[in-house]
Write a protein that binds this DNA or RNA. Structure first.
Lengths: 324, 324
DNA sequence: TTGAAAGCGCTAACAG
DNA sequence: CTGTTAGCGCTTTCAA
């Protein structure tokens, strides 16, 4: 399948050139055995001359693993979660942590089809924001590839994950911004992921304590018409506060409220923060997520798995609220 | 080094379970030999039962390659080039193209040190925006890993690359926006990369035809003080137009001009475009880059290299100017 | 039709 | 101190 023209120089070539055995070459180069400096130099010279590099694949075959860790970001449909920034941050930081431990991050598609065509010896995988009963996780189970998720698969038990504690965060955010009894509208978008359920569960908890009602609105996309219709219905139903699933949804919602001159009447909150919330009027309060820490913890967790310390863990990160 | 607890099921296990030889298993599963359907079924059943997966590493050892392609983004210091967006776009699109061809993208650090600690059998690498005499490219040459660059290493010949034709684009942008004889200031930042030289060369060409002068200003960072000082000097020296290396630099420069109420006196241009240029007053004209196409072309080029069609190529993409 | 064995490149155990 | 060999998991001749 792969056609590399020239043969690579093997350890045998070096051995022949240096007039020693392959073992000696191996030892000399890796500094293992106690060879006389003389021999070592001779071997090194030969290796240099021939431009010898040990074959990573051969090493991998012996060691049962090359140190490859998959990074699988589950796309959030059109809505792109909280924007490229969140995604890029996770990839960047997970990669850095992996790299610093000598492991290499491999970008994976979120598609069982593409995945099964890939013949890559993965030592572990980080899956970001899995779906409920995510088929990709099933695939990894079948192929016996250990995985760790950022966010949870709601339909699955016995997984290891790290996640922002959005439910708690949302509850706190509501406490800090709304009067008891305020009726809520929750506007969501995209497939069912854990952060959606968490946002809602936080809202429900607050609502039950404070005797408020909640209506759920599901958006197909962020087109103006659509958004406006949702706001219309929410207002009609008596909502005095709207909670947006994430910032990409919050901005259009706010715009729609402004069109109706309701921006001070109906309070807008967002489950994820954005720098733009600072600029906008009225400013939007939100929860601050921790992509950097999530990525780092996830990376360390897969490293532990690979290294054999595979205690299953579920970790919630405490999130801050940003009240504006 | 890697300690995976349980032994994987090998082709031998399947052979034993099915009561045949390993050859038969191999043939049966790959559909190669002409075995009786009976045998084939028996083998398949055994393989399924045991959850057998051929070892990607063993295959790689035979085939001399696993289909791994490195993605090496050269960080642009503090300035982050044209923002995360550009980077993310290139990574995303290059990855998609590679994955659709059955190759896997590996995220690489731009550090010879980290790189040499990584024992990964790369079949090829894409390097984005290499430095002049980039040591990472030297590393790949030494380790005999074929590379292809987006942007050029100014100190190196005989490379293969694809690049936006920024020089031409800049020349055109100046033609479209400035009167002949307008004196220019070029504000740059970060290490010497090809797009810096290109921007300047485009400016020089236009300036020589139009009898304008050019002064070059090098910024350490984008702190307000610094930016303001540069603008001060540029204005003092009589510049009637300022060209920013990229959009992240343009915005602060514009702010500094506004502070001096010179935004209509001195024209600001940018070598890379940004959606924010639309919102700002006066609107900023710029060149529109093509990260998507660059990524795609680069990916196809390394694929060709890997597959053996290794004609060396240097491709300039025509860029559009966005005059506002 | 099926199987034994060589070979991909390397290291570690074991002899000499 | 140095060399031979087995084995990592697979496919592909080549024999039977």
């Amino acid at each position: 399948m792969i056609m590399s023209g020239k043969q690579r120089t093997t350890i045998r070539d070096v051995a022949a050139a240096a007039g020693v055995s392959v073992t000696t070459v191996s030892d000399a180069l890796s500094g293992k055995g106690r060879l006389p400096e003389e021999t070592r130099r001779k071997v090194r010279a030969a290796a240099d001359r021939l431009g010898y590099r040990p074959s990573a694949i051969a090493l991998g075959l012996r060691d049962r693993g090359l140190g490859l860790v998959g990074l699988c970001i589950v796309p959030a449909g059109e809505a792109m979660l909280t924007g490229v920034e969140y995604w890029a941050t996770i990839v960047t930081h997970a990669s850095q942590t992996l790299l610093s431990e000598g492991l290499a991050p491999v970008l994976l598609p979120h598609s069982v089809d593409l995945l099964s065509r890939l013949k890559i010896p993965l030592d572990g995988v980080i899956v970001v924001d899995p779906l409920k009963n995510d088929p990709v996780l099933t695939f990894f189970e079948k192929t016996k590839i250990r995985y760790f998720t950022i966010g949870r698969d709601l339909g699955r038990d016995n997984q290891s994950w790290v996640d922002d504690d959005i439910a708690k965060g949302m509850e706190r955010l509501l406490e800090q911004t709304l009067a008891p009894g305020t009726d809520l509208a929750f506007v969501t978008i995209g497939p069912e992921k854990s952060y959606v359920a968490d946002t809602l569960s936080g809202m429900q908890h607050w609502a039950s304590v404070n005797r408020s009602a909640i209506k759920i609105h599901h958006c197909k996309n962020t087109e103006r018409r659509n958004i406006d219709a949702v706001v219309g219905r929410a207002v009609e139903e008596g909502a005095k506060a709207i909670v947006a699933q994430h910032d990409r949804l919050a901005l259009p919602l706010l715009a729609a409220l402004k069109v109706r001159k309701l921006q001070n009447e109906v309070r807008l909150l967002s489950a994820t923060d954005s720098p733009e919330f600072e600029q906008v009027l009225p400013p939007v309060s939100a929860i601050r997520l921790h992509p950097t820490q999530l990525a780092d913890k996830a990376a360390r967790a897969v490293i532990d798995m690979i290294r054999g310390r595979s205690d299953q863990k579920k970790t919630f990160l405490v999130v801050e609220t940003v009240v504006r």
